[in-house]
Design a protein around this nucleic acid. Structure first.
Lengths: 147, 147
DNA sequence: TTGTTAATTCGCACGACTTGCAAATTAGTT
DNA sequence: AACTAATTTGCAAGTCGTGCGAATTAACAA
């Protein structure tokens, strides 16, 4: 994702307005490696800007994703997560606490696949599951997911 | 997934009852490669058994998944899909029509991954996206997803 | 065959997540 | 300062799935 300043320019060039709400979200997302949900991001945002609405957070996240500045990650079940890292990468999810981290796969294109005959493949997403270092050390860590 | 007859035995052994509804679903799922959603399966089931409820379909799918006879696939956004193929395999999704197919990856364990330090990884899911053969041939095929 | 009991079915309500809508507000420009 | 289109916001609504409770039924025993 571009820096907040660059995003301001990018939004104006796209004919979009730069509001205080958006600028706040630009800041909160910049270098954010927490893979927040819309709700999570909202909770942080509302502390700095008490009036901001969850609807606006959704809206801005959608806009950023549409501009390719943000990757939306659907891990099934719960809420979508948003990743300002738009490099080619993948993810690990902790089954216990729901934590998500970026993972880099060097030779993803070297895997040999059967069953893709006739398919025009555009992308491949890899999601690893397991226990994060913290939850490995703490056996009974309660899941974060609401469901 | 086991055959319908074997599932009957497995359910009884687990202390679960074998109802006509369940037997119907056993049959509909056997050798089913369509990766149906609960809703889709319900629509087929209700034709053979007009009174069956969507609730029961969800219940039975959950039971089968808990017994390891069915794999639940969350591809984000829409409804979960169910796969009676419980072999170690992965999936391709058609962006146009939503079709899902099984894919076998031979050397999935040979990929070199960075960022998993300290993580205890249990599994890896790979989802390919693209256009299925039909949608490659028919450019403007409408998406199936309701969203 | 009849009785017993725990499991199941089913419909409805509800919960989580997300989007549609419309009125009021505001950013960016003239 | 005025204008206009974009934005914000709250609420309603939609989708997917689950909790709950009353009525039903499978499984088993006498």
């Amino acid at each position: 994702m571009k820096s907040p300043d660059q995003l301001v320019l990018a939004f104006r060039e796209a004919g979009l307005k730069v509001t205080p709400q958006r600028q706040l979200l630009f800041r909160l997302l910049h270098d954010n490696t927490a893979h927040p949900t819309a709700e999570t991001l909202y909770e942080v945002a509302v502390r700095e800007m008490p009036g901001i609405s969850l609807r606006t957070v959704y809206q801005t996240l959608t806009d950023l994703a549409a501009m390719g500045e943000l990757q939306q990650i659907d891990l099934g079940g719960g809420a979508a997560r948003f990743d300002p890292n738009v490099d080619d990468h993948h993810h690990v999810v902790c089954d216990s606490c729901g934590d998500v981290r970026d993972v880099y796969v060097a030779n993803a294109d070297e895997i040999s696949v059967a069953g893709l005959a006739g398919f025009s493949v555009q992308s491949a997403r890899i999601v690893f599951s397991g226990k994060c270092p913290t939850c490995v050390a703490t056996p009974a860590a309660p899941p974060v997911r609401k469901k």
